[in-house]
Design a protein around this nucleic acid. Structure first.
Lengths: 112, 112
DNA sequence: CATCGATTTGAAGATTTCTGCAAGTGCTAA
DNA sequence: TTAGCACTTGCAGAAATCTTCAAATCGATG
């Protein structure tokens, strides 16, 4: 199987591996937003947000265009929203498993 | 909204952001496998594979158990397979968009 | 008990990613 | 054309991640 394929998949996921980038994508699920609004919602420095937007742009997950004085961002494909949804599901599954394990550990005595 | 939630989501995706880890998860989709087999399939050093398996374990995406002389690994939840599938879909969407863009660029003349 | 195959752990150096600051570009309005 | 938002870019230092080597563990076997 093609090695670069795994590389591409890994890069895709790595692109999502940052809290600010995740937030941006979630905010864009409901439609395009100007940087100004993202900035107001996320609590990060403007230059930092811009860097993260550049990462998302390079990965092809968002597109941007200028609207008068504002720069607007939008998801490049609605599939991105699906991926986020899948992520939420897994997170739920993994966290419950983990909690279940924790409970089990607690129940089996304090030591060993 | 809770800040740690975005953190958790980002960590989940970051866990997938490595070619070896992606391959491991894909190989485990069809059922548990011993490290020995993963090693034969992936072409990476044993200690490196072990490090990556540890990352997946800490993230709660796989579980392991010993079977005689071998250590077996398995997906901790089938939801993981869904996430990989979603990733494949997006990758397809993003790459076609990108190719379409490339084609467009090519069609519009060799220079700018 | 000494060893061997299978796997994990620890640690260090190399590489990548993150963050914030200073400076720069693009538009709009006075 | 000067001024002022709205963003982006270039960087440098800090922090996190990767990769590999050497050493340690765990079972099974001679």
């Amino acid at each position: 199987m093609s090695v670069p394929l795994y590389q591409a998949k890994a890069e895709l996921f790595r692109t999502l591996g940052h809290p600010v980038r995740i937030r941006v994508l979630e905010l864009l699920q409901d439609g395009p937003l100007p940087v100004r609004d993202l900035l107001a919602a996320i609590d990060v420095e403007a230059s930092n947000l811009s860097q993260q937007l550049a990462v998302l742009r390079r990965a092809g997950m968002v597109t941007s265009y200028r609207d008068g004085p504002l720069v607007m961002y939008a998801l490049s494909t609605p599939d991105v929203a699906d991926l986020l949804a899948a992520g939420r599901r897994i997170l739920g599954a993994v966290l419950t498993d983990r909690d279940a394990l924790l409970d089990e550990l607690r129940a089996s005595g304090t030591d060993r």
